[in-house]
Amino acid sequence: MQDNGIQVFNIPAGPGSQEEGDMVLDYMKMPSEMNTYDIPMLPEAKDVERCPEAVKAMDQLQQMLDNYKPGSVTQSVALDAMPEADLDLLNQVLGEGEVSIVITGDQEIKIQETVMAGVWRLRCLNAEGEVTSECLEVADIPASVRAYAFEGSYALNLQDEEMPADLLNAPSVLAEIADVCQSFNGVAPEQPHVINLSLLPFSPDDHAYLAKRTGTGGVTILSRGYGNCRITSTQVNGLWRVQYFNSTDQLILDTLEITDIPAVACAATEDLEDSSERLVEIREVLI
């Protein structure tokens, strides 16, 4: 009887069986940390008793959080005349949250979200960098962001413009921006118009030309959570540059959004409700 079996060859496998040469297996670094909500270190009851203005401000914040709905008129609590001890106590209670905003222009405004989403600390600075006024504001996004984001913006006009011949996709992206922005009137659309640059062949010349034609606006927003999100207004009405970075500061998503304010920067209804509940708990402990 003839043996028609298939021969089996013993091929070495496992550690040391492959010739690696100069090849190195290199994995992208995994995110190492994530910003989360931590309950602030609350002051002692005796310190609270000595700071009635801070207690009054927290009462006002509670009323505003309970009544505010996203899209309604923002409300604020002035801090200019508050005694230093009261202000320090209030700072201790509110802490710093994930979103920071800088507004440049005739007057610089620095904005920091507190640990309670939807409660913002605003500082107006003069030309010497001195604080001229400050307040707390309850809003999905501070009113000054909407007011100054596209101040001095212009309509993108590409007619009769000769573009560099070596561009890849910048011309088509600019044409899409010009078309969509024509209908933008500063009112939030049901869905923002998003252009994902990460999915397009985009050369350094494309990026440079796009930045030159759209310009840089007066509002920069940094949202720190699982990685960072940098949001910058442009000089084209309604157009934002939204870039996502991982925890090792590598750009992982590069987009353009045509909307009033990108949703990632705003406190949602659920966030505001949660902040109201947190403040109730804090006040119950302190007062």
Rank of each mutant, 00 (worst) to 15 (best):
S183H: 11
K46L: 00
Q243Y: 08
V77C: 06
L61E: 12
C135D: 04
R230P: 07
N237H: 04
S198W: 04
D140L: 08
A178R: 09
G16P: 04
A165K: 02
N246A: 04
F245D: 06
G217K: 10
K56F: 06
A165R: 02
N67P: 00
A117T: 13
V131G: 05
I177W: 02
E151Y: 06
S247D: 12
A57W: 13
D26P: 00
G227I: 04
A165S: 13
G71I: 10
S276Q: 11
T114R: 01
A13T: 07
F9N: 08
M28D: 07
N185F: 04
A54H: 03
S275Q: 07
R230D: 12
A268F: 08
P40R: 03
V264L: 13
G227S: 05
Q250S: 10
S153T: 14
Q7L: 13
E277I: 10
D22G: 01
L25P: 00
S183M: 14
T255P: 06
F184M: 13
A85H: 03
A265S: 10
I177P: 09
M1V: 06
Q107W: 00
W240A: 13
M64Q: 13
K69I: 11
A13F: 01
Y27C: 03
Y226H: 14
Q7P: 01
S144L: 09
R241A: 15
E96M: 03
Q182M: 11
N91M: 11
E113A: 02
M41K: 05
I141W: 03
E137M: 11
E108F: 04
D160R: 07
V73E: 11
M30D: 14
V24F: 10
P70K: 05
G129F: 15
D166G: 02
E20R: 13
N196G: 05
P201R: 10
D205F: 12
K110P: 02
P43M: 06
D254S: 15
T216N: 14
E128F: 12
A188F: 00
E130I: 02
N246T: 09
Q250H: 09
L158K: 01
R278K: 14
T255L: 07
D3T: 02
V24N: 11
P164R: 02
S172H: 04
A54E: 03
T248G: 07
W240V: 14
V55F: 01
I287W: 03
R241T: 09
A139E: 12
F184W: 11
L87Q: 07
G21I: 01
P52K: 14
E130S: 06
A57L: 07
N228V: 00
G152M: 09
L200Q: 11
A178Q: 08
A85W: 03
E281G: 07
I231H: 02
F202V: 15
S17F: 01
G186M: 06
F9G: 06
A85K: 06
L199S: 13
D205C: 12
R146Y: 04
V173T: 12
Q191V: 13
P201L: 10
Q75E: 15
V173E: 08
L200E: 05
P262Y: 03
G14P: 08
